[in-house]
Amino acid sequence: MVHVVTKGAKVAEGKQRAGDSQSISRAIAVLRAVADRPGASLGEIAKDTGLARSTVQRLVGSLTSEGLLTKTFGQQGVHLGMELARLGAKVNLNARSLLMPLMEELHREIGDNIDLTVLDHGEVLVIEQIASNEDIRVISFVGRRHPIYCTANGKAHLGQIPRNEALALLGDSLERMTPNTLTDPKAVMAQVDAFREVGLYIDREEFGIDACAVATTLPEIGGQKLAISIAMPAARFKRREEDAKAALLAFRRKMQATFGKSI
């Protein structure tokens, strides 16, 4: 049997889908507003979301009936519901397993060394790594620790924390690893501040001779501050720097599109 769908029916279906998507987006906006302001009134939620108060009242009613929001007896305003906690407890946020497919895709495009790192006790810790395909390469491995002040990932992690905390981590004196290493903590932070504007952090032979890298920060996963980098010998980096930068920014956008901006 052949089902014939008229043009009018297709238009109506399209409008319904658009309406459903809009309702979901508005419901998520309400949930985020309540998360940021527990006990908010309907008027406060409307102000924070830019939605009409009547729309907020309808959405709060629907979300409350599903247990996602609650109006607790004896407390004013709206609070997050226990159903959110139940659902959240079932989410296994493992950065390595979540990001490996995207890292493999990035590696197929670039071919050079890729490090996924976290900030751990003032150092850069490699938690996942894909080695370069090239004969001449920058070597890294899972579990390796790097200085925070002279590596691309380290600068990215410095850009993720408040300036006073970053300066405290750097201390008063920094070891010169190569002739290019910045040893003045204030100079390092000035560079970090400049890099933060574009979202890319660069090491030009500051940690090791003939080794360069570019990194970017990623949304937190499971409370971990993450950064990812591409490292390669200086001559190749000079040729492929713009490719590496574009690939990392695309990786971050893809991660956000896949998992959301706040994981």
Rank of each mutant, 00 (worst) to 15 (best):
A227K: 03
S229T: 10
E242S: 14
E241M: 13
E109Q: 12
K254L: 08
A211W: 03
A257D: 15
K261Y: 02
L59P: 04
F73W: 10
V138L: 02
A9W: 04
H107K: 00
L99H: 04
I230Q: 04
I24V: 15
M1R: 11
R32Y: 08
K15G: 00
L51G: 01
L249K: 15
A29S: 13
L158F: 09
G39S: 04
A168K: 14
E13F: 10
A46C: 05
L68A: 14
E220S: 14
E175W: 01
A35Q: 12
H157F: 09
P233K: 14
I148Y: 04
V192S: 00
G61P: 12
V5A: 09
K47F: 08
I202K: 13
A40C: 05
L80Y: 08
V214T: 11
G154M: 12
H79N: 11
A211E: 15
A244N: 09
S140T: 12
G14R: 12
A244P: 02
E241F: 15
R32E: 13
G171E: 10
A213T: 10
R253N: 10
R53G: 08
R32T: 06
T216G: 15
A215F: 07
N180M: 09
N94V: 03
N113C: 06
I136Q: 10
D172F: 01
S65R: 12
R58F: 12
V138P: 02
R236G: 03
V118I: 15
M189S: 08
A247N: 03
K90S: 07
S62P: 03
T151V: 07
V60F: 04
K225T: 11
K10Y: 10
